[in-house]
Every structure is written in C-alpha cells, then in structure tokens.
Amino acid sequence: MTRPLGLGLGFVLGLALFLVGFTVPPATGPVVDSARMLDADTRQFLDGKLREHWKNGGSQVAVVTVPSLQGLSVEQAAMKVAESWKLGTKDKDNGLILFIASKEREVRIEVGQGLEGFLTDAHAKRIIDKIIVPAFKEQNYARGVLYAVNAILAYTDPDAAASFGLEEAAPPATVKRTASVGRSTFSTLFENGIFFFIVFAIVLGRVFGGRGSYRRGGYSSWGGSSSWGGGSSSSRSSWSGGGGGFSGGGASGKW
C-alpha cells in the first residue's frame, strides 16, 4: 500500500520538477556558481569580499550563474531568484543580483527596490555593455564579474566601494589569467576604456555619495562564516531572512 503510494508521489514530484523547468539554486552564499564559470580563487575572493561588505552594513550583493534558463527569459529567471532569496534588508530593500546564464549567453543586473535610485537602469546597462560583455566575449568571466561587482558597488555603496578598491578587485587570479594570454591586465584595461570608466564611476560615487551614514545600522555579525544560509531569527544576520523587495529594476544584455 505504502510503496505504490510512495512511487506515485515520487512520479508526481518528478513530473512537477520537470514541468517547472527552471529551479532557483539554493542561497548558499554570495557566489553561487552553478554553471562553473569562475575559478576557485575568484570565487573565494568574491565570497569573502561580499560577505564582509554585507557584515559591515553594506548592501547584499550576490553573483549567480546558471547553466540554462530552461525556456524562461533572463528577466523572469532573475526575478525568480530575487523573489526566492529576498536579498537585502526589509526596510532598505538593498539587495542586488548579478545573474548570468551561460548557455543563453545572457546576463542581468537585478537591482533591489531600495538601490534603484543609486544604480539606475542606465547605469546597469552601461556596466553590462562596457564591462561585462567585452570581458565575456573573450571568455574572461572572472574579470568581467569582478570589475562589474566593483562598478556596481561604486554606485550602491560609494563609501565602501572606495575601500573595496580597484587594486583589491583585481586579485592574483585575474592577473594570472590575463597574463597567460600574453598581455598585462593594465594595458588591456586601458585599451578597453574600462579603467577610465571605473575611475569615473568611483569619483562620481564619491562626489554624489552622501550616504556616509550607512554604517549606522549596526548590522550584527554573520555568526561565523557558515551561517550565510542559516535562516536565523535575526533578519540582518542571515542571508535568507533579509526580506528585501525587488520590483524588476535593472538591465539585461547578451554577449
């Protein structure tokens, strides 16, 4: 009696999963690289930086790569992740997702409602067009993601972005990668005009920043680095408990 029931249940569940198609990856940390597009060094570097950033009272930024959109548009898929993860705090809605679909070669910056005024759709589109797409076309995903995150933070958290720093955002992994192609990171950056863009973005962020009070919130600690997805009761110390809202702002692009 119970066995056929279990089998039937399993079948129904399997069918449901098949029909739903796109499944939101679990929120295990700030970098969820399901499509395996980033190398371990970059993943680790970004993970540490973004955790620290959130812990220090900054916005909650995540990088998500998926192997396929399973028939959804990139906007729909990114919104599914945003609605399920609810990054950012409930009162500030300061979450952001850099969402990358490797098979469809599409990318989206999904901006939390509270950050829309700082990182406008036009800014997001520029970051995609001028930083992400050129790097991704050369299959240098690590560089694209790192510089994009750096540029994003220059808008969303001007003060913190200054301390995040361009030098820091180019960890050994990226240098090694570019060096193996036979050019120095620096000259490549100059050629692409990316360097100027980021400097410009940071300067702009500093001039129009005026968000000096962002540390005031008194965010509690992560409670150990493993509690990212812990779902603890304190809304500000847990990854999934933030409750930030997304209304569909941001920009998309293809590479």
Partner: peptide, 18 residues
C-alpha cells in the same frame, strides 16, 4: 538615447512584474 532606452526597457520590465 541609450540611457533612455535602458530606462524604458527597465520600466517595461517593472510593468510586467507589477
């Protein structure tokens, strides 16, 4: 124009979501 276009696209997406 590109900026305005990006904003328009973003807003169309917001309309879809809303």
């Amino acid at each position: 124009f590109r900026d305005l276009q990006a904003q328009l696209e973003g807003t169309e997406n917001r309309i879809t979501v809303a």
